[in-house]
Design a protein around this nucleic acid. Structure first.
Length: 510
RNA sequence: GAUUCCGUAGCUCAGCUGGUAGAGCAAUACACUUUUAAUGUAUGGGCCCUGGGUUCGAAUCCCAGCGGGAUCACCA
């Protein structure tokens, strides 16, 4: 990359050279002994001990974020991983004894250091005249010179922010800058990772095992989606980035695990927008000897626990709604849900009649759609928008669910549920299909759909069928969209806010 | 993919019905030993996204392209 340097970038390179001329290494190799985080200093500050603090040396490191130069003294702000703290720096204290011209302060500190530079300081805790907890600096060392100026975000006395770094493109492309200057970013990610940890804790406490299954798969199974295709040179064969890990996790249940789960990246070669990224994180869990009713109970328990742990309350604000994760979630069958929000009972209707209903409701459909797909379209257009509070929609048409067990008592349906929260699908679960002969027929039906032109139809996985023939216990499985869940728990509408590095168009570097 | 808005200094943005650019912050220099968006004084900084067109003259009007946002549709 070659580009013209801005005035400020040239300045900083000159300063870098001058620092070296002074005999100071701008990128020292040695570790810097940090004794405190800025947050420790602030939370542990004891006013009764201000006198004793003078004798107690603390050492901090971080970025220099602001300097208020007062002549022979200055105030500065140091930002470390835990926040910011003010530094008070006096000329005569930081200059070495032999530095008679006070160049360490006058030249090095005042002229050659910039906002964004990493520094380490030692000093003691104190409080300024106006009461701000600060560090009285006794020594200051450059740890890493920054050659590009950071966007300066300033907050005034009323809390108004000035010159904010808010352009989404810049923020996502340069997440390192976003994290450095925007204090609202890190807490979102902390909450996301706390949520993932809380889920893991919950599952581990049940004795379920966290496993890893292939990302590169010869057959992309387990979901209906277009995959990314790649090629393995040594084997000279095509491989697909997984769109789901379902079929591998079930093989592990066949192998004798009682409960396995995996939290990992899935890849789908489809649209991108504020709720879809080409790679996203899914959680899948399979538990032997259970059914989908049990899984609904588990889901309620898990989510109420996790939300309580992560948000400190089980009722949280999402958009304009208070969403209650603690109560028992409403359970509606697909047919009941459609009847509730359209007034039409389609449970006994055939494909032609349902097609009529679609026209009547102004639901957009096309001729390739079968009965199951038509029902799904009505649901998407008329029901989803109403499902604010956590709601289980259960008993789906069999056509849409080739990996799900037939309903124990309702012909044409499967034992499946999806969990909707704030109008979005958050989880999808089955009583898993473990009848190998039925499974083969379902795959064959998918092949027929593919032949009709359905690009998302599933591919027949012969090895998976073989595994079922060795016997899979009755099992219930569930998949959660982790990014979606994180969006709910952080009240964010854009998935990009919960991904450190969302997929972007290639950047032009001229 | 459709609609719509935007692209001006390092950053955030002004710039009217066309007359070749402005503010605040940042930068540079000086002053100031308890400030906190520190302050005061001074200075430098622009291919006005790109390419065409209209015009005596375009940051401004028109067309095309590139980049981005928002909304809508499909997928988690």
């Amino acid at each position: 990359m070659s580009r013209e340097l801005s005035e400020q970038e040239i300045n900083r390179r000159h300063k870098l050279a001058q620092i070296r001329e002074m005999g100071i290494e701008p990128y020292p190799a040695a570790l810097y002994n940090v004794t405190h985080l800025s947050s420790d200093i602030k939370t542990d500050f004891d006013h009764a001990q201000i006198e004793q603090y003078r004798e107690e040396t603390v050492s901090l490191a971080g970025r220099l974020m602001m300097v208020r130069d007062m002549g022979k003294a200055a105030f500065a702000e140091l930002q470390d991983s835990s926040g910011r703290i003010q530094l008070y720096i006096q000329r005569d204290e930081i200059c070495p004894a032999d530095d008679v011209d006070k160049n360490y302060y006058k030249t090095f500190f005042k002229k050659l250091l910039d906002i964004g530079d990493y520094i380490g300081i030692t000093g003691y805790k104190f409080k300024t005249k106006v009461g701000e907890i600060s560090i009285h600096v006794k020594s200051l060392q450059l740890l890493s010179k920054a050659l590009s100026p950071l966007p300066i975000v300033k907050t005034d006395a009323e809390g108004n922010k000035h010159d904010e770094f808010l352009d989404p493109e810049q923020r996502y492309r340069m997440r390192y800058v976003d994290l450095a200057v925007n204090d609202f970013v890190k807490p979102l990610f902390m909450r996301r990772f706390k949520m993932m940890q809380s889920i893991r804790n919950f599952f581990n406490a049940q004795g379920w095992i966290e496993v890893e299954t292939p990302v590169l798969q010869p057959i992309h199974g387990g979901a209906a989606a277009r995959p990314f295709k790649t090629h393995h040179n040594t084997l000279d064969m095509p491989l697909y980035l997984r769109i789901a890990n379902e079929l591998y996790l079930k093989r592990l249940i066949v192998g004798g695990f009682d409960g396995v789960y995996e939290m990992g990246k899935m890849f789908r070669n489809e649209g991108m927008d504020r709720t879809h990224n080409p790679e996203f994180t899914a959680l899948e869990l399979y538990v032997a000897y259970k059914d989908y009713f049990w899984m609904m109970d588990m889901t309620e328990k898990m989510l109420s626990t996790v939300v309580q742990e992560v948000c400190g309350a089980a009722v949280i604000e999402v958009g304009n709604h208070q969403i209650d994760f603690a109560s028992t979630y409403t359970r509606l069958t697909m047919y009941e849900a459609i009847e509730k929000y359209t007034g039409i009972d389609i449970s006994e209707m055939d494909e032609q009649q349902i097609r009529q209903v679609c026209h009547q409701l102004h639901v957009h459909i096309d001729n390739t759609m079968g009965r199951g797909k038509l029902i799904d379209e009505i649901f998407g257009a008329k029901v989803e928008q109403n499902l604010i509070q956590p709601t289980f929609i259960i008993d789906y048409p069999i056509e849409m669910s080739p990996l799900c067990k037939k309903h124990r008592s309702k012909p044409g349906l499967v034992e499946r549920f999806e969990l909707f929260i704030n109008c979005k699908e958050v989880a999808n679960a089955y009583s898993e299909l473990n009848d190998p002969i039925d499974q083969r027929e379902r795959f064959e039906e998918q092949l027929r759909l593919a032949a009709r032109g359905d690009e998302e139809a599933m591919v027949l996985d012969e090895d998976f069928l073989r595994s079922l023939e060795y016997g899979m216990p009755p099992t219930s499985g569930i998949g959660f969209g982790i990014d979606r869940l994180a969006m709910l728990l952080t009240n964010q509408v854009s998935i990009q806010e919960l991904l450190f590095f969302p997929q972007m168009k290639p950047e032009k570097m001229d």
